[in-house]
Design a protein around this nucleic acid. Structure first.
Lengths: 110, 110
DNA sequence: AACATAAATCGTATTTTTACGATATACGAT
DNA sequence: ATCGTATATCGTAAAAATACGATTTATGTT
């Protein structure tokens, strides 16, 4: 009696909520920003860039990967992460267009 | 040792995370969509439109109001809600532009 | 004044998120 | 083969989010 009752809403709304949720934490925003700006796979250094413990950062990376915004490959003993641009654009567009479309309704109100 | 360590991140990132968080629930997305499409204050009927209890919907409305996406006024015994378009555009733009700007870095990677 | 109705708030149970230390795993170097 | 390093996973504690029923509050109606 406390779990979100997601079944009651549309597929689209659930999908958008999921995307919004993964970008609703400063650490994950920081990770995305860093990966995007460097525009390369970053192997290893990510943990040093985020002021959280190694295990916590690893967990945030996993969540970003699960939603598809980033991808990770293994390079020897290190892990390399970078933005999955195809999916990143797709998901971010989905989110932004949903809300930008709503703006079209703005005419006047109270 | 479980609360988000928000102090460690930038003001901008914390602000964007806050906006993302409030739109990270299907019920709140549904409320926004309904208010935007009707383009009017809706008095009372909101609770009937969302498949959750009255108290839960009231809680979601409060969160949306706190972030500033919607505004509510009292009209007699009823409450009237509508999109706060000025703030809505401002906040949504802040969010979407942050991530759209990152797209500019996309050249090639792994 | 008494009653009905709408909506906010309170109290609380459950689930999810956040965070970390400890441990496991996997690879490279010696 | 052993050791060191990097990263993922496990276990767990604390906090926040979600949801609802019960109650309170405020207004309109009789």
């Amino acid at each position: 009696m406390a779990a979100p009752k997601n079944e009651k809403f549309s597929k689209e709304q659930i999908e958008i909520a999921k995307i919004a949720k993964v970008i609703s934490h400063p650490a994950r925003i920081e990770i995305i920003k860093t990966l995007a700006e460097k525009n390369m796979c970053i192997c290893g250094e990510i943990v040093d860039l985020v002021p959280l413990s190694q295990s916590t950062v690893s967990q945030h990376l996993k969540e970003l990967k699960e939603v598809g915004l980033i991808k990770g490959t293994i390079d020897g003993v290190k892990s390399c992460y970078c933005i999955d641009w195809t999916q990143f654009e797709e998901k971010i567009n989905l989110l932004t267009e949903y809300f930008n479309k709503l703006k079209g309704h703005k005419i006047k109100c109270c």
